[in-house]
């Protein structure tokens, strides 16, 4: 029996999500037994145009060339899975969308802007091609990618868990930082997946895993205002990592509109 073929592609991103594979330790060796990693540039295998069963895609679309690449990848892949905030919502770089004209923006950052050729927006993969499964997180964890891969190998539909982080936070026995210290925690509107990492270390969640199933951005926004945040600060809490996520963008727009 031939092994399923897997590719891991990179678009505009920091490479952090691919580390979910590289840092998997012994599981990575096991993975190499189960699948053929035909394209994974960070680990040495380079066949970007190969036909595969599963393509993992890290990063957002920020150049015209990337639009072509993602269409090719879609055509060559049975399943396409986005990994991380960039690929799934446009990532931190989506903060620039609609803010400034691209050229002004670039000129304010780069000494020689003529060498830069990018789109005015950073967008999620799903805005360009059909995506079969999305893994949120900044970065995603090894547990997430390996569990999804295992499910696909078994030909079962991967479980999508968009429950709010607070559930995992309470299961972990963390003491709530919002209730005890008035920290502006985004856990109530953020999906589980990280194991409530930030509250475990006494800091507020900043929503890196993206929107939970039922986001009540209005109610949390009001609560954060009550904790002393300005409406601009509340909007930043929603937009920081996943500005392109609709539920967060709506919450931020509502907050700014209401108070400014």
């Amino acid at each position: 029996m031939t092994k399923p073929r897997v590719a891991i592609h990179k678009f505009s991103s920091c490479d952090g999500c691919q580390l979910a594979f590289l840092n998997a330790g012994a599981a990575l060796l096991e993975l190499a037994q189960l699948v053929d990693l035909v394209h994974f540039a960070e680990a040495g295998a380079v066949q970007p145009d190969a036909a595969v069963d599963i393509a993992f895609v890290e990063g957002s679309i920020t150049t015209a060339h990337e639009i072509e690449r993602i269409q090719n990848i879609r055509a060559n892949s049975k399943y396409l899975v986005t990994i991380g905030a960039c690929a799934t919502s446009g990532g931190i770089q989506a903060l620039r969308n609609g803010k400034m004209q691209g050229a002004d923006w670039i000129a304010s950052v780069y000494a020689s802007p003529q060498f830069i050729s990018s789109l005015d927006t950073s967008t999620a993969i799903a805005q360009h091609v059909k995506v079969d499964y999305e893994l949120w997180g900044c970065p995603v964890t090894s547990r997430q990618v390996l569990q999804l891969l295992r499910d696909l190998l078994f030909a079962v539909r991967p479980k999508v868990n968009a429950d709010p982080l607070c559930l995992d936070c309470k299961r972990a026995g963390n003491v709530c930082v919002l209730v005890t210290r008035g920290e502006p925690c985004m856990g109530p509107v953020t999906r589980t997946g990280c194991g409530a990492l930030c509250p475990q270390f006494g800091r507020a969640c900043y929503a890196c895993f993206g929107p939970s199933e039922l986001v009540n951005g209005h109610a949390l926004g009001q609560r954060l205002s009550g904790l002393g945040l300005t409406s601009a600060d509340v909007a930043k809490r929603f937009l920081f990592i996943n500005a392109g996520a609709e539920a967060y963008a709506e919450a931020a727009a509502f907050t700014e509109h209401k108070h400014d």
């Binding site: 037994q33 891969l149 078994f154 429950d163 607070c166 109610a219 949390l220």
Partner: peptide, 27 residues
């Protein structure tokens, strides 16, 4: 309401639970 579930998880009488599989990578 945020639908965050904190009320139910701090409630000393709530007993709901879910069961799931954690599958080893080797299957």
């Amino acid at each position: 309401c945020l639908s965050c579930g904190n009320c139910t998880l701090v409630c000393p009488t709530c007993f709901c639970h879910a069961e799931s599989e954690v599958t080893a990578l080797n299957g």
